[in-house]
Design a protein around this nucleic acid. Structure first.
Lengths: 329, 329
DNA sequence: TTGTAAGCGTTATCAT
DNA sequence: ATGATAACGCTTACAA
């Protein structure tokens, strides 16, 4: 059995209040008493019972991170960043998978956690379906931390344009999507083309089912088979780009000599692909840090609810081999 | 403020005991009363306070998974498997990073979790350094779920031997390691060679700092530069193998025609590399399931401590392109 | 069938 | 400077 406050108090010959005072470094404790208590704590190996403390304080020190899957490196890297940011705030992270409808309702609705962080695939239906599920009810304000989807893909496209590429493929359009990340990124691609005075060509906008390496490879396969000529690929995420690289490699098409490829996410994998992938770094660490901080503030402000805030973080374009300047063509 | 048992009781005009009875589906409740209580629960939006329940029961329903990093796909995939297994047991998973010495002591020593699962990189020092840290003290029994390191790498090596490979590289030896996964795998490699009547050649046993894609690529680079001829690579994990594939691809060496490559872990990535990687599937789902089950049993048996158990799970060799039979050489 | 009350281990408000 | 004692919200003997 674990030792409790009263065990310590009894051994030290004081009341539990005094022990509690010592633990919390309250002022006004006689040094002699304090020492006696500290000795008693050491003697019985006392550790505060966090559950009891939580019941009193109404807090648990735990937040949950709800995401679709850890097998997707994007989410794994985000989770790691969140865990580290949470640690800095003195919080632990419970990871839950959002299997469709029940977006992580388990531990959360049951007040096991002080707050929740949601990360989605950025598809439209997903985001909207989420709000209904929130434990605090649909009225409570929700903060958002977002990335510059449109601007970043526009910058990515302009990067290829600056290399002299003119037949640039947009890889990853999602047909039904009109407000999610997919459509924002498609918009950025179109903006870049328009600003460069190029017509957008439907046959260069390639749709995929999901933003995975597999679909990236398959879509590139289909693209090649269609005979449509192209000299650049703006993939809407790194997984798609890595899939594209695989297919291009298999077909003997040289990157970056014949085709430039750029991705989005700056996964660890992007550094080790062949060739190493140029990509957009969306500011993952900052997103994680801000999200955790905002949640921590909200947890601290219980009662007086803060207004909903939306923060957008800056991105960076990371140049690697897949868009290196072709020496000669 | 969240509604409590007494709020519900007051509204329904019964005692909290009755409400509690309804919640726990106790027998002997008059249907009319039950309905009244259920209505009241719905009316105030009552959700049981898990923290209070935990304080009473002494359990939290949370276990922690301590691992080095989620950025390593091996651990990300394991974490996902553990989360799913835990969900089946009605447990939530808190993920903690073991940053060196303090192997996840935070939430754990503080009784926030009912039990802990450790997954390490399998290096020797790491494992031994762990036991001292365990919250329950060094006496408490610890269960182990392990994979067949030696047998699996032996099978991998024999797979290459069966393809006619004779100059097989072991990629991933860790010099200082005499009891960790590295040495067990090296042993399997040597056993296979010995059984085939081949001498083990030191120049074919390539050491690396860490089992990463980066070091796999670098070690393969060094191997090629050394001029040592070879026709097969047994990598001690998939990351090393994927790094090797990258270097071989870069150098224009064809896999599997000139060199056969096999890995260990069966990461999702192994399916999408170029060429797709043959590998050892170490039984990850089973490991996760068994580990969670054993822990759940231990949590249930509080008091009467079970003896320490060690379970070893079977492996499977997954054949893909990187060891396809070369048609002609 | 339902109610009363004790207690889980803390923290915090009073007194003293 | 320290000690009683009442909460926190729940489960569960024991009574009624």
């Amino acid at each position: 059995m674990a030792a409790t406050l009263s065990d310590v108090a009894q051994l030290a010959g004081v009341s539990i209040k005094t022990v509690s005072n010592v633990i919390h470094d309250h002022p006004n404790i006689r040094p002699a008493t304090k020492q006696r208590v500290l000795d008693a704590i050491a003697a019985v190996g006392y550790r505060p019972n966090l559950t009891a403390r939580n019941l009193r304080s109404g807090r648990t020190g735990v937040i949950s991170l709800v995401l679709p899957t850890l097998r997707n490196p994007y989410f794994a890297e985000l989770a790691e960043a969140v865990i580290e940011a949470a640690e800095r705030e003195g919080l632990s992270v419970l990871i839950e998978q959002s299997r469709g409808a029940d977006a992580g309702a388990r531990a959360s609705t049951a007040q096991l956690v002080d707050g929740m962080l949601f990360s989605t695939l950025g598809s439209e239906a997903e985001d909207t379906g989420l709000y209904a599920q929130l434990p605090a009810g649909p009225h409570s304000p929700v903060d958002h931390v977002t990335m510059r989807n449109t601007e970043a893909i526009r910058a990515a496209t302009e990067h290829l344009l600056a290399l002299g590429r003119r037949r640039i493929v947009a890889l990853g359009a999602r047909p039904g999507d009109t407000s999610g990340a997919g459509s924002l990124r498609l918009l950025g691609y179109r903006q870049a083309l328009a600003a460069a005075g190029l017509d957008s060509r439907p046959e260069l906008e390639r749709a995929v089912e999901s933003w995975t390496r597999f679909d990236g490879a398959a879509a590139t396969e289909a693209l090649l088979n269609s005979g449509t000529p192209f000299d650049g690929i703006v993939a809407f995420n790194d997984a798609l780009a890595l899939g594209a690289l695989r297919t291009l490699g298999q077909r003997g098409i040289r990157v970056p000599e014949q085709v430039s490829v750029i991705g989005f996410d700056d996964l660890d994998d992007a550094r080790y692909s062949l060739p190493a992938l140029t990509t957009i770094s969306p500011g993952r660490e900052q997103i994680a840090t801000l999200a955790v901080q905002m949640l921590a503030e909200r947890i601290a402000e219980r009662g007086e609810p803060l207004p909903a805030r939306t923060i957008t973080v800056p991105f960076a374009l990371v140049e690697r081999e897949s868009t290196a300047q072709a020496s000669a063509d």
